[in-house]
Nucleic acid binder design. Structure first.
Lengths: 368, 368
DNA sequence: CTGTTAGCGCTTTCAC
DNA sequence: GTGAAAGCGCTAACAG
């Protein structure tokens, strides 16, 4: 396929605006208007143009639009390195959901990659400086998040998966109510007859960790149970395992252990096995995230499912609002769903088929 | 941060080519040449230009470039819906690795989303028609893959993770040697003293499934063991579980079960538990993928790690070659790595700390 | 070796 | 209501 020598760049066989214009017998501007500014063109002309667009299969060129408008309909997302010793970052499902929600508003996702939080901002900056990116989605926001400050300074709209935790009303975020989740999980094991209920969570510095632990704490207090059984560790399998051993070595040991993550919970399960104890039958265990590992481990691990499709939908909605110049950023708190499996059930280690259970808390409540 | 009105030539404060040109006192063209065509500019001028580029922090605008060159340095990838009842699609790690490799060559990943293989082509088409995408990465290629034909017709370069399996020399692919992997896994359990070694794999229609089963078959034959113990099922936890029950119900039951995936293997582990058998001690079990679920389950599941970083690197390399007009597409077969854990070890259900073991097969061999 | 010209596809003025 | 002009930032072609 030889390219005829000439001045301009290579032809690419795509239908352009002027192709449509020529076809209909109007100017390119009218076609543009018919598409983007329907009011400014006569209904009759509009009809003809739209049918020609359809017929020729015209699709606007994103690069040209981006060049002209400074808006690319591209949303930047970071992919972080995933460790195979952690029970899934959910990035997988989240990205799919995000891509789907974005597509619904004509947007696409562009990835940038960074290994740490510092290089993350550098990656955003790099993407912004070379590519027209309309907005970013950040994951795992936390109090005093340097990324938030940096993106604000760059003047680019963004929404975060995770609250700011410092009462920042100017931040658009969507988050999952970990506190309600752990309240539900704790109440669930209490309903199985447990009274010595422990929590293995993340260190005090983690906002999300504190939130989840508070759910356990509240539930225990509500039920008149003690709150002395808790451990704060990093989100690591072996840390969870070690924490479980400590909780079981106590004089009055735990008979149920709620965890801030599936990774920790699966570490706890390992510890039980090392002591000849059975999850469910001897000690109830619950996790958080409903990762594949929770569903596939034996016995199945009771966990809390995050409604990632809804999270993605709300984040895209929040961004869309930001781009349309909304004054008040959208903030949404979603409820996780308790998925009960054998690890938290007494009796034979029979897995109920993964069946969602209602959280104790009220249905999703949006804070607009 | 308000943009001072009417001052800067740029709406968003980005440094452009002509800014650099004006700064140095040359034409925009020379700056462009200094960057993209170093030979065509005097070394001295080049120095000055490059230092100005550095100083002003100039970054070329991707949209403008794409518009002009029909090349965007964007690689399209599909994200598929992930089921939480499967042991990870590895998409997570793969995407990160891919984004990293792409970044090394100045490319970025743009996502498209599709639920099935048919809508996948539609998604590619949509992306191509609106966005300048230089190439695609396909995952899970198989014989008679409709996507391959469709992308060829569209004339877009692409590389696949997974062989074509129909001896297509024109296809650029990278794949992992599942046959060698299962050979290694089978030999490993044989070395533990097992002689009744089964395989739970995918249906005959699956090329990858046949390949992996062949590895098991070869190893058994090499070792003088029978090859009657096998089941072909869909990649599903419950299917794996049921298959294991069938294999253990036989008159001369299996004492070791190698599987085509971690999902199947974890189903097998569940079946063992239901019969009061211990993985490792009673029946050895191995999976494939080394998913988080394998590392975190108890006992740890012996599995085969796919070298995803290398896969990603090779795929990007293959695409790069394609874009530079290489005649022979790059085809690479990589070796998986056996990760031995307690599920395949006799004796106390003690997990060795996840430690890589060499496959029996020769080191990575590249077919250029 | 360097500058000028032209144009990629699109949309925001501003005439008509 | 419609079209003509201009230009977003960049680079291939062709002078000078």
């Amino acid at each position: 396929m030889a390219t005829p020598p000439g001045r301009g760049p290579l032809p690419h066989g795509h239908v352009t605006l002027s192709d449509v214009a020529r076809f209909v017998g109007v100017s390119a501007q009218s076609v543009s208007n018919a598409l983007n500014n329907p009011g400014r063109v006569a209904p009759e002309t509009r009809e003809k143009i739209l049918s020609a667009v359809e017929q020729l299969g015209y699709r606007p060129n994103r690069s040209a639009r981006a060049l002209r408008n400074q808006r690319s309909r591209l949303i930047g997302v970071r992919v972080e390195p995933s460790r195979d010793d952690r029970a899934a970052l959910l990035l997988d499902q989240f990205l799919h959901a995000l891509a789907e929600s974005a597509a619904a508003t004509g947007c696409h996702l562009i990835l940038c990659q960074a290994d740490g939080e510092d290089s993350e901002v550098a990656a955003y900056r790099e993407l912004l400086s070379t590519t027209s990116v309309d907005a970013f989605v950040l994951t795992g926001a936390h109090a005093g998040d340097s990324r938030v400050a940096a993106l604000r300074e760059l003047g680019v709209p963004f929404a975060t998966f995770g609250r700011s935790w410092d009462g920042d009303d100017d931040l658009a975020w969507t988050d999952v109510d970990g506190r309600a989740g752990l309240h539900a999980a704790t109440a669930h094991v209490a309903a199985q007859g447990h009274t010595r209920i422990a929590h293995v969570g993340w260190p005090e510095e983690s906002d999300t960790g504190r939130d989840r632990r508070a759910g356990w704490h509240d539930a225990c207090t509500d039920l008149g149970l003690g709150v002395d059984l808790h451990e704060e560790v990093a989100d690591d399998f072996d840390e969870g395992r070690a924490a479980a051993h400590r909780l079981l070595d106590r004089a009055d040991p735990a008979t149920a252990i709620t965890c801030a993550s599936d990774t920790l919970a699966l570490g706890v399960v390992r510890a039980l096995a090392e002591r000849g104890l059975r999850p469910g039958g001897d000690v109830a265990v619950t996790g958080f995230d409903n990762s594949p590992a929770a569903a596939l481990s034996t016995p199945g691990l009771t966990s809390l499912r995050q409604p990632l499709e809804q999270v993605a939908h709300d984040l895209v909605g929040a961004i869309e609002e930001l781009l349309h110049g909304s004054a008040t950023p959208q903030q949404t708190l979603l409820q996780p769903e308790l998925v009960v499996r054998a690890s938290s059930l007494r009796g034979p280690a029979h897995d109920a088929h993964p069946s969602p259970a209602r959280p104790l808390t009220p249905p999703p409540e949006e804070t607009p």
